[in-house]
């Protein structure tokens, strides 16, 4: 099908991709429900963006870097980030590698070559350019993928990063996850031109893809990664999907939009994946059901398990501001405890 893999290898790779999408979906549903039950403070759902992220992830090597944003759970799961790591972050417990300091959806998975997630959108993009410069400087064979939404293309950071990456011919894949909404603003009101077309103005290569279809996305991503890796400079991928859920658990989309793609409909990326895999003869309804209940079981079990972990100790709040704690912070810590 893709001419990238041979028969059995292809089947394994595709099934693993599907399995990541399912696990992400189950994870998403679990966290949204837990938030409503008051067991989680906040969350930005990823439902609808699974195929985009898994498709791109499939085209990467483990040592490629990802400078991701807050909606990239499927991306992280497919690159092997354990569900526990995501749960610990969301719960902000004492096992969280960032010590419960960030609000939910702001993950850290350094050992899987992900950057720490920030809230101010697109501020990760210039950093990805710097990372790519370092890679080029050291003559390494790696690429950097940086992800962001459609709304984020309006920022000065997007412009700066696209321009710099192009000027220095750097191996950066700019993955715009166009879910067609930036909170309440539809993409038509965000920009007058299609996002992928902006690449040309910077001297980069731009391409648009159906981000609901993981195989289409994979093919485009593979091509983009090959380009970047072979020194042909940055690529801007516009992957078009749809934000099926609310912007966040604090958001009520009924205030500003009619229902678009719904879960389980023909354009749901998971439904598309199932159709593709069935057409290839790689999967049956029975296997699908089994995979889904297994994913649900894993998520439920891990959630209950991680929920028992206590919060970080108050004194941890004062660490990591600088390498050496300043005398002011030392004093403040002493006063407080």
């Amino acid at each position: 099908m893709t001419e990238v893999f041979n028969g059995q290898e292809e089947k394994d790779v595709f099934l693993r991709a599907y399995s990541s999408m399912i696990l992400s979906r189950m994870f998403d549903k679990k966290i949204v429900t837990a938030q409503r039950q008051g067991r989680v403070g906040f969350y930005t759902p990823t439902i609808g963006q699974e195929a985009t992220q898994v498709g791109v992830s499939m085209a990467l090597n483990p040592d490629d870097l990802v400078y991701e944003y807050y909606r990239d759970v499927p991306f992280m799961i497919h690159r092997g980030v354990p569900v526990e790591v995501l749960l610990d972050q969301i719960m902000g417990n004492s096992e969280d590698s960032a010590k419960g300091r960030q609000m939910p959806s702001h993950y850290n998975a350094k050992d899987h070559n992900f950057m720490s997630v920030q809230s101010p959108v697109a501020t990760n993009l210039p950093l990805a350019v710097g990372a790519a410069y370092a890679i080029k400087h050291r003559k390494e064979n790696r690429v950097v993928v940086t992800t962001f939404g459609d709304g984020s293309t309006s920022t000065p950071d997007f412009h700066a990063a696209m321009n710099l990456a192009s000027v220095y011919d750097l191996p950066v894949i700019f993955l715009c996850e166009n879910n067609q909404w930036a909170i309440s603003l539809p993409v038509e009101k965000q920009t007058k031109v299609e996002i992928w077309k902006k690449a040309e103005a910077y001297g980069a290569y731009g391409v648009k893809v159906d981000g609901n279809d993981f195989l289409e996305t994979f093919k485009v991503a593979k091509d983009a990664v090959d380009r970047a890796r072979s020194g042909k400079g940055p690529v801007l991928i516009e992957a078009i999907s749809y934000r099926i859920g609310p912007h966040s658990t604090s958001d009520d989309p009924s205030k500003y939009r009619a229902e678009g793609i719904t879960e389980g409909s023909e354009q749901d990326p998971i439904v598309i994946a199932e159709k593709r895999l069935k057409d290839l003869g790689y999967i049956t309804d029975e296997i699908i059901d089994r995979m889904k209940s297994e994913a649900k079981r894993i998520v439920d079990q891990k959630f209950d398990e991680r929920e028992k972990i206590p919060p970080p100790k108050p004194e941890t709040m004062y660490d990591d501001v600088y390498k050496e704690m300043t005398w002011m912070v030392k004093e403040e810590k002493g006063e407080a405890l």
Binding site: G41, G92, N93, K99, G100, R101, Q102, M103, P104, P311, P312, P314, T316, M317, Y318, V321, T326, M328, V329, E332, K333, A336
Partner: peptide, 10 residues
């Protein structure tokens, strides 16, 4: 507030 960034859980 102390001279640190603003923490979530704490």
């Amino acid at each position: 507030g102390p001279d640190t960034p603003f923490p979530y859980r704490l």
